[in-house]
Design a protein around this nucleic acid. Structure first.
Length: 199
DNA sequence: GTGAGGATCGTCT
DNA sequence: GACGATCCTCACA
């Protein structure tokens, strides 16, 4: 797998669509995190869409509060939240200001800064991609993403510590399955993953 | 190799 | 006062 040189930053209009579409099109994109002067990147291979009021599993199904305000705000902003008291998960907001919706990042394949990611995860540098970043909380930990460091970041800004790039790569096929790890609206097919096998 | 249970805290009712 | 979009460890087969 090679990276093209003409990677470009996804603009805010990319996110200004329905979470289902954004979740699908984010597959194969490159997540970039500037951490302590270092560049950590990984290819997105699994996402989930969370809708607004129509989706009981979504945080945005409830009234606006400081907790979920980012999902109601303008598109392309990072929403970091703590789950089970231990783990952080990352969303990016979708749809125009005022309309709730977002995409949860579930898994990436590490590309750059693997040693740093392993250190942040307290793992050996030769740990598998799955152990490093194969879960919503794992990828946040591997990239040093916390609510304190990254909540409310504009992912479409060139000066942001958190960005998504398009290097032209597109997955051969996309698998759609029901979402997992939730108890409401379990049957909605809003989980998307890259079907390509590891190169 | 597989399965079950514990950890831990912000947010909502 | 209770729950949750999860991960890790330990036990057992």
């Amino acid at each position: 797998m090679k990276r093209a040189d003409n990677s470009k930053l996804l603009s805010q209009t990319f996110y200004n669509r329905s979470p289902e579409v954004v979740a699908k099109e984010l597959l194969g994109m490159i997540l970039v995190r500037h951490y302590a002067g270092e560049r950590l990147t990984g290819r997105i291979v699994e996402t989930e869409a969370y809708l607004g009021a129509a989706d009981p599993a979504s945080h945005a199904a409830r009234a606006v509060s400081p907790f979920n305000a980012v999902l109601f705000g303008p598109p392309g902003f990072a929403d970091i939240y703590l789950i089970y008291g231990l783990h952080y998960c990352m969303n990016v907001s979708c749809l125009p200001d005022g309309e709730p919706g977002g995409v949860l990042f579930r898994a990436i394949i590490p590309l750059e800064g693997i040693d740093t990611m392993a250190a942040l995860r307290n793992l050996k540098p030769n740990a598998s991609a799955k152990a490093l970043t194969g879960g919503p909380a794992r990828l946040c930990q591997a990239m040093g993403i916390t609510r304190a460091s990254s909540h409310g970041q504009n992912m479409a800004s060139a000066s942001s510590d958190l960005q998504i790039l398009d290097d032209g790569y597109r997955p051969k096929s996309i698998l759609t399955t029901p979402r997992i790890g939730i108890k409401k609206a379990v049957d909605l097919p809003l989980r998307f993953l890259v079907d390509d096998r590891e190169p």
